[in-house]
Nucleic acid binder design. Structure first.
Lengths: 112, 112
DNA sequence: CAGCATCCTTTAAGATACTG
DNA sequence: CAGTATCTTAAAGGATGCTG
């Protein structure tokens, strides 16, 4: 797993949980990807087009990480040409409001 | 500023705010430092002892970043030996509950 | 279409020695 | 005591060409 932002080799469960949270949100495109998936499943190509600035490798990597974290899930349809869809998991949906609420922090600090 | 986790050269104000939020929380010791300051001001040396795993340079750097972000403030007393205290700003205090609520996300994803 | 492999650049993070 | 300066390492992020 990349994008590890360790808080501490923590014994304290609070810090462990925080660590996990940071794992989830602290990747350059993590939140952005999550937001593209909030309402509906998206194909890989769609996501590429929605976030053209991110390179292929990094997008795949971030998607993989989010899948292994359990935030999103991947569904491959055995068709030709191949079709793959990504969507939020139940847990992912569950934390979406909290993630969205993070904007309020930024808004407060953006003011002069 | 280091620890930039850019979401996008964003026109969307939502993403700008999120970017700012990530600036604040996505540093290895950021949240940890903030938590040490939640109740009271702390001297530099105290913080060092409270988080012995972090190097001098990184701690100073993180403190500086948090100051320039407006999350914490630094107060230097003109004494010998020098005394410097760090504490949360009003804004910092204001967002503390939200930051603490981030643990809930981690807790959810830590379960098997 | 979706995604892997490889190589390269940039940035965060850490260790250590020195200073007002 | 509270920093700075310098060097090194580790990791994230990115570009590009190839494949099932």
């Amino acid at each position: 797993m990349n994008n590890q932002v360790k808080i501490r080799e923590s014994i304290d469960p609070k810090h462990l949980a925080l660590q996990k949270t940071l794992d989830i949100i602290c990747g350059k495109w993590r939140l952005y990807i999550i937001y593209q998936l909030d309402t509906q499943a998206r194909r890989y190509g769609e996501l590429r087009r929605m976030i053209p600035e991110v390179s292929e490798k990094v997008l795949i990597q971030e998607l993989k990480d989010l899948v292994s974290l359990g935030v999103i899930e991947k569904k491959s349809y055995n068709e030709v040409p191949p079709r793959v869809e990504y969507s939020l998991t139940a847990k992912g949906l569950q934390v979406l409001p909290t993630l969205l609420s993070l904007t309020s922090i930024g808004e407060l600090f953006l003011e002069p």
